[in-house]
């Protein structure tokens, strides 16, 4: 890990591979958070939930 990192050149953009991986992970996590169903929230019976009563 202490060897110099590979760099990606894309026009004037120069990105280290570790940074590229990190940005990819961020975008991937965001996409997953948007599409994955949230546990315990789906297919629940509305009767199990409460209506907010107090005002």
């Amino acid at each position: 890990m202490n060897q110099p990192a590979p760099y990606v050149h894309w026009g004037f953009v120069v990105l280290s591979l570790p940074n590229l991986v990190l940005i990819g992970v961020m975008l991937g996590l965001f996409a997953l958070a948007l599409v994955l169903p949230f546990p315990g929230r789906r297919h629940r019976r509305p009767a199990a939930d409460e209506e907010r009563r107090d005002g």
Binding site: A33, L34, F38, R41, R42, E50
Partner: peptide
């Protein structure tokens, strides 16, 4: 101990 039912996305976890 309760949240609005619309709080149902992984986005809230960040």
């Amino acid at each position: 101990d309760q949240e609005p039912a619309y709080v149902a996305s992984w986005v809230y976890v960040f």
